[in-house]
């Protein structure tokens, strides 16, 4: 028994359809007969890649001229459903991303149904989906399901599934017009800035080097950047030093930041609060350097070094030079 139809929220950037979208498509195909996508933007630009990942049709708003994606896409979907233009799917899957959360939140109010957030697995239980959400730093897995008449709205954490292309023909592009928004559509993007970052992206890097409060000061974060550069790694951070303003939010690994699953994760001066563990426990190999031998990070580390990051990191970076 599978679901009839799932809608997956498609996000895309300059380098094509976002990985989180492709991950959700792979899971959606497992549990539903028909998988369709919806997006706030140009559907034609994504049609080939979406089709390759098994999408039959993509419902697209077209260019939003700076209007916010959340309210625009949610209004467009709700109005297509209430106007009888499309039937509501059994479930919506959206990524736990900046725009994904906005769309899910607005849509839940418009359709008067709940949202379940942060799921890392979805499976069929009878004729309904159940989702698994890690809590307490991933020490407990909570399985939940909706008890309403649907549709389900699930927010899925990145890196939960593996993308798997099936070589389908391009998805049919269907117009999803945004209705007159009125006051709720008042926010408009006036300018966009790209943060220039050298090296690989945090959530795609094979190696991640993260720093925490044990660094002692914002200046000491340069040791993390130095080692990351030497290893071709992405620099990351614990929530503590993001909250302290040492590095931007975009560096944050954890429950409220990015989920990473690199080949090697190097935690430097990070104690291993549950908030952090949930974002990096899935790494293939974990190296931890911390002064405190009792730090919880050592419980998940394949190699733990009890020592001062200020002493170990400079030597490590130097030893790697010329390799």
């Amino acid at each position: 028994m599978t679901l009839d139809r799932i809608w997956v929220f498609c996000e895309a950037g300059d380098d094509g359809v976002a990985t989180i979208t492709l991950e959700m498509l792979a899971k959606a195909r497992e549990v539903a007969g028909t998988v369709e996508a919806f997006c706030g933007g140009d559907g034609a630009a994504c049609a080939a890649e979406l089709g390759d990942h098994g999408v039959a049709a993509v419902y697209a708003t077209g260019d939003l001229s700076g209007r916010m994606k959340g309210v625009s896409v949610a209004s467009a979907v709700a109005s297509a459903i209430s106007g009888g233009k499309v039937a509501a799917p059994d479930a919506f899957l959206l990524g736990t991303t900046y725009d994904g959360r906005d769309v899910a939140a607005r849509l839940s109010v418009k359709l008067d149904v709940s949202v379940l957030s942060n799921v890392v697995d979805l499976r069929l239980d009878g004729d309904r989906l159940v989702g698994v959400e890690p809590v307490f730093g991933g020490t407990l897995n909570v399985t939940s399901r909706f008890t309403n008449g649907g549709p389900d709205i699930w927010l899925v954490r990145p890196k939960s599934f593996e993308p798997s292309p099936v070589g389908g023909s391009p998805a049919e592009v269907v117009d999803l017009p945004v209705p007159e928004l009125g006051a709720v559509g008042g926010a408009v993007v006036r300018d966009r800035f790209t943060e220039e970052s050298e090296g690989p992206k945090l959530d795609e890097a094979a190696i991640v080097v993260s720093g925490g409060r044990g660094l002692g000061s914002a200046e000491a974060y340069s040791m993390i950047e130095g080692l990351a550069k030497q290893l071709g790694a992405a620099p990351g951070a614990s929530r503590a030093i993001v909250d302290a303003g040492w590095v931007p939010y975009s560096y944050q690994v954890g429950q409220t930041g990015k989920v990473v699953k690199p080949t090697v994760y190097i935690a430097c001066g990070i104690s291993g609060a549950t908030q952090h563990l949930v974002g990096m426990k899935g790494s293939k190999n974990i190296i931890a350097i911390n002064k405190d031998s009792e730090a919880p990070i050592f419980a998940v580390a394949d190699l733990g070094v009890v020592g001062d990051v200020h002493k170990v990191l400079p030597k490590l970076t130097e030893a790697l030079e010329g390799r």
Binding site: L140, N141, V142, F146, A299, G304, V305, G307, V312
Partner: peptide, 27 residues
């Protein structure tokens, strides 16, 4: 709340590995 919890399970533990104390050569 039109949702319910059907199960709470302990997540599989990740085993701790080797721990060394830095004597100046941990790098």
């Amino acid at each position: 709340a039109d949702q319910e919890i059907t199960e709470i399970a302990e997540a599989p533990e990740r085993a701790a590995g080797e721990v060394v104390v830095d004597e100046g050569d941990a790098h």
